[in-house]
Design a protein around this nucleic acid. Structure first.
Lengths: 396, 396
DNA sequence: CCGATTTAGTCCACTTAATGGATTTAATAT
DNA sequence: ATATTAAATCCATTAAGTGGACTAAATCGG
């Protein structure tokens, strides 16, 4: 339900609106902010003063556009104070990154660890260490880590990881195991979702797209008008188990002919006779026939699954990330051929097919970016109001 | 972007919050409303006074719960004044209904017309007549028709019907052709979307479901937490063209093996050797083998498409409406068998499969309901504020 | 059966946060 | 140097909600 608005929440919301507009429009003057938000110059000025005091924005040099009249002093997001921590647990590595308010990546940490062999407790205590180091290093840069998000490769519901099959996890309460280190406790979210958000905030700039993040499994995150679609239980976007050939080979999900059986990392490497994605990419560059045929087949299957996804989701663009990013040149042809044949007659615009520039980095970046975006949308907790009339204001 | 809040929009929003709570909680006292919304009793009282004056709520008899203390006077939505018109154009009929604020259906009009044979202009002038009659009859019941929505069988973008293949329409500007009769002009929306909303507001009470509305085509509307999912261009939910058997028979969409080729009304009737859905239902009741086999086959295909849809959409429940409603007893078995086999190993909860109680009525009801819901969410246009202190208030 | 208790709803003085117009400030144009 | 223009601030006003006091109308309990 929409919540009632009171004076304090009105201010809180307007602060968020102003700060959001500062982000959207780069350096802007107070007058322009007033224009854009519909608030008065007075109100905007007061808010900007508070945001300046909180270290969330800075005054930048006057743009000096050679126009008449007093030039405004522009304000822009300040990267100097507030920051967010993004954490990622994946099958064979842990990583952390710290991002400031301007979405500048301030530091990165990654460590190769085989988390399949480790228990959740071991993995999480390892992660704890990395997180602590990152927070300390951020502090030495003058940054305050205001929040964190953790990405895990599996469906998550409110801090509980239902199952992460590739990690061998079942019903792990991540929040509890990280208690004490980070305040507030990190938000925990699904890898594919966060990768899509990473693509939104750090990638090509689209605001409507379906991001396909092929790893061991194949997940997809749908972003519509800058917002992630999660479904009723947060399990939406399981592209890997969309039915492609109903009578195909059995899948670990209990079904048959799921996309994962044709375009999943394991199936793809097996079909190409390669050990790793890098090896496969090398063979493709050499023009290896088996490798090319494997990509062709995977691309066709992916195209079929994406056809269904486009009919259901109606995305603006399709962005291929994860392992599909390095293989894009050899996969995209088959994908496009399949989707175009099945979509063009009924849709005005067949979604573009694009590569992710981020690849595997998208996830941790998305995790940190999510925190930043929440702070920008609702910065009131970090801003102390400058009293307009400090107590005994009335002169005589 | 979230819009800035000012004093007037604060009041507008809070009015909507209060009225929404009145709807949600049936007859409630002002004190309970204050509790639920977080506003003070004072504020709620003022708003209820204005809503009473606008005829949007009424005071109902005291519930008299035998508790201590002064009993409150409950208020509930009033069906006596504000109403909405729902209109539907379909292949072989036109229909209209008027619904009041309490979502009570106050009147209904339907006329069998073959709209395939008619031009858009003819069809719309016919619709105009029906709409005028409905508005007049509503007025004679003391109702004010505050808005209207028109359902058409095809994708719609801001009043423009891109293509309604079953009507033979292409790029019809519906709004313009209805000019002059209804103010404000009706909203135009897709049939499948509105059927899903009809199911939400007039049906079984679920707030998270995928509504499958099988007619000539097969559309689906996804409702998540009471909100319709529309995709980037409003074309989401085209379940009929989800790929079921990639090498199956060609479809008018340019693809092959789409769901529509197996479970669409035409394919189903042809396979069963029946002329109409009623005839098919009759044969099924008699135990006709060909009819049963056709339903079995359609159910299996529908199950495959729904498997993909569940993986992507993650709906709470699946509701079968349209032609699938009367055929439910003979189709649901095959659907469930297919989906359960492919979903149960990977999902904790396989969505329930339910029948729509509304069948074909869902569409027009959803159209009218949408208007009502918009009014309840933002009633400020219909409410004149009672000035707290009328001008010269200060006593001396 | 009458006072105590409890809850609903209203009244009123006060607070918050925004508004709008006047004023000050700092540029460019003439 | 002066006029013009736009940015930013100042200040009195206004809209809308708050909170506590007050009144109203029930049930409870001796």
């Amino acid at each position: 339900m929409t919540q009632a608005v009171r004076h304090d929440s009105m201010r809180a919301r307007n602060l968020g609106v102003v700060l959001g507009e500062v982000r959207r429009s780069g350096p802007v003057t107070r007058a322009a902010l007033a224009e854009m938000t519909g608030l008065t110059k007075t109100t905007v000025s007061k808010m900007v003063a508070d945001l300046l005091a909180a270290g969330m924005v800075t005054e930048t040099g006057v743009p000096s556009r050679g126009e008449r009249g007093r030039p405004g002093t522009a304000v822009a997001l300040s990267g100097g104070r507030v920051a967010a921590l993004g954490l990622e647990i994946n099958v064979d590595y842990l990583s952390a990154c710290v991002v400031d308010l301007t979405l500048e990546v301030r530091l990165r940490r990654a460590r190769a660890v085989d988390n399949r062999a480790a228990s959740p407790v071991e993995t999480l205590s390892h992660l704890r260490e990395i997180a602590r180091e990152a927070v300390e290093e951020a502090r030495s840069l003058g940054l305050v880590v205001a929040g964190s998000t953790l990405a895990v490769p599996g469906p998550v519901d409110d801090g509980l990881v239902h199952s992460a099959p590739n990690l061998g996890w079942r019903d792990v309460h991540v929040g509890e195991l990280l208690d004490g280190l980070l305040t507030p406790l990190p938000t925990v979210d699904n890898e594919a979702n966060l990768a899509a958000l990473g693509e939104l905030w750090f990638g090509s700039g689209h605001r409507d797209f379906l991001h396909v993040s092929g790893e061991i499994g194949i997940g997809a995150g749908l972003v519509v008008d800058g917002a992630l679609f999660r479904g009723s239980h947060g399990l939406a976007g399981e592209l890997g188990h969309v039915v492609v050939f109903p009578d195909g080979p059995p899948c670990r999900c209990g079904g048959r002919g799921c996309l994962e059986q044709y375009a999943g990392q394991e199936a793809l490497l097996r079909a190409a006779g390669a050990g790793t994605v890098e090896e496969l990419a090398g063979r493709l560059r050499e023009g290896d026939a088996a490798a090319l045929a494997a990509c062709e087949r995977a691309g066709h299957a992916l195209g079929l699954a994406l056809t269904s996804a486009v009919h259901l989701f109606d995305p603006g663009t399709i962005v291929l990330g994860g392992v599909f990013a390095p293989l894009f040149p050899w996969i995209s042809g088959a994908v496009l051929e399949t989707t175009a044949a099945r979509l063009s007659a009924i849709r005005d615009a067949v979604p573009d097919l694009a590569v992710s520039r981020l690849g595997g980095d998208a996830t941790a970046l998305g995790a940190a970016g999510q925190v930043i975006h929440r702070i920008i949308a609702d910065p009131v907790a970090y801003v102390t109001a400058s009293r307009t009339a400090p107590a005994g204001s009335k002169p005589r």
